[in-house]
Structures are given as structure tokens and as C-alpha cells.
Design a binder for these strands. Structure first.
Lengths: 130, 130
DNA sequence: GAAACATCTGAATATATCTTCATATGTTTT
DNA sequence: AAAACATATGAAGATATATTCAGATGTTTC
């Protein structure tokens, strides 16, 4: 997902890049904005977070968990995906601390990490409604 | 990004699937939760939205635009990515109505679609802070 | 209207992601 | 401790995604 750095036409006082470059760009604006741009590292972190939510099955898992705590097995049945696939996806949700879990006997029960997530969901819902 | 339907061990009254199945699952819980699960279609739509935000360069573009309106050319310089790549990515942001644009002469100026997006950004920021 | 400019788009390649299958880990029951 | 169960994990194949390059579109200037 993006490689960062390492292509030509990137630094400014540059060589043979054809179109809009160096003094053709609105240098003043670029300089003004540049310090405000999210640093690559943080962008990477945030992208991973959004990425965890960028899958229909994971969202369906989340919506199931919004109602009640469920074990992997029930989640698989509810969302109609294999248990293995569910487990893989829960790992991704876990890695972004979107869900938490507890073990009870042989089952592992998952639930949403915090209500925070729900308001995010609602906000996006509204945006998509328009 | 997910295929939905079409594998074994999915419908309930089923054949030879090994582990946790049919009457082993907590059927009551599954039935209780199932009607609340986000429909596939909506999950798909929402996943596409999150996916648009799930790339570091696109997030950096957004953060640049959070400050001021900018043309493609300036965006490319500010974020240090080729203009073609920026254009491709702007298309994705546009498709989710995250940015809007207006033409002025030969330039196309992009800006954030609404302030809505910024509060979403802040919420995620907080989540990642913890 | 031709040339230069700014942006967009399609095809191709490289990388990332999802699902499946096989197997490993951890828990309970006998 | 062996067998059955629930979940997790690694590798492999199929699909999706991002970037680059070449060329197309639309705009201005001469």
C-alpha cells in the first residue's frame, strides 16, 4: 500500500521532469501547506486503521458485535463465512483495537472495543445517506 | 474484496462440515443477532468509503486540503507524488464525495467536500492516540 | 488553429489482501 | 492422557489496488 519515497520528479530543484514543476507550481502555496500535511508515519498508521474497516465482512462482523458479545463460531454462522475466515478477520480488527475478547471455556467471546466506534459508524452512515 | 456466497458450510441444515455447526452453534444467539447485521449491500458501500481513506497518500492529500484549496499540480508537489498518481487518487476521493473541485482556467482546484470529514478525522485521531 | 499547459485515463506491472485448506494451539471431557 | 472441540495461524492461489508510462481531453495563448 504505497511505497513512499524513491521516484524521480519528487524533490524540487530538479532535472528533467516535464510538466508543471519547480517555478511553474504555486510555490508559495505549496510551502504554506507543506508543514501542515500529515507526516507519512501517522498517515500510514491511520490508513491501517481505515483499512481494517474497509471490508464488507469485517463491517458485518462489527455490526453483529454492536448488538451483543459473540463467539467466533456464532459470528461465522451469523455472517455466513467460514470460521477460519472469521478468525483471520478478527485478527485484523483486534490489531486496530476495534474489538476486544475474552476466553470462556473453549469459546472466545468477542465484543466491540468501545462505544466510540459506534459514533464513528453513525457519522459515516450519515455521510453515505446524502 | 470478499466474494459473498458460494462455499460449503454456509447454510445451516448442512452436510459434512466438521467443526462447530448446526446445533452446536448457539442458534438462539445467532437468530437474535442476524436481523441486526448490516446488509451486504450497505456493508459493501461503507467498505468502499473506508477504503478510500485507507491509503497514506490519500490521507496526506486530504490533510493538505484541510488547510486550503489546491490544484493537482500543487498537491503533487506538496505530497511529493507524481501528478498522474495524484489524479488517480483524487478520482477515488471524488467517487466517495470526500473532495470537491472546481475548474479555473487550466487548473482544477480541489478542496474537502465538507467539514464533516474533519470531525471524522479527529475522532479517529483520538482512537489512535490511546 | 497550432502549440503549450494542466489534468485525466487506460493498460501494464508490482504489491497487497482475502479466502481456503491443512495444521497447530489451547480447552474440556472421558 | 486421549479424544473431541473451538479457535488461531501459515502457505498458496485468486483478486484487488497503486504506481508508472503513454497517450487522450480540455484550456489558454499566440
Amino acid at each position: 500500500m504505497s511505497k513512499s519515497s524513491s521516484s524521480k520528479s519528487q524533490s524540487f530543484p530538479n532535472e528533467d521532469t516535464p510538466s508543471c514543476d519547480a517555478y511553474l507550481v504555486h510555490l508559495d502555496r505549496v510551502r504554506q501547506v507543506q508543514p501542515e500535511i500529515m507526516p507519512v508515519e501517522k498517515a500510514q498508521q491511520m490508513a491501517e486503521f481505515f483499512n481494517a474497516l474497509a471490508d464488507p465482512n469485517r463491517l458485518r462482523l462489527m455490526s453483529a458485535l454492536a448488538n451483543r458479545e459473540l463467539c467466533v463460531c456464532d459470528l461465522a454462522a451469523a455472517v455466513k463465512v467460514s470460521e477460519s475466515a472469521v478468525s483471520h478477520q478478527l485478527r485484523i480488527l483486534r490489531s486496530q483495537r476495534l474489538v476486544k475478547y475474552r476466553r470462556e471455556g473453549r469459546n472466545v467471546y468477542y465484543s466491540l472495543a468501545d462505544r466510540h466506534i459506534i459514533s464513528l459508524y453513525q457519522e459515516v452512515s450519515e455521510h453515505l445517506q446524502e
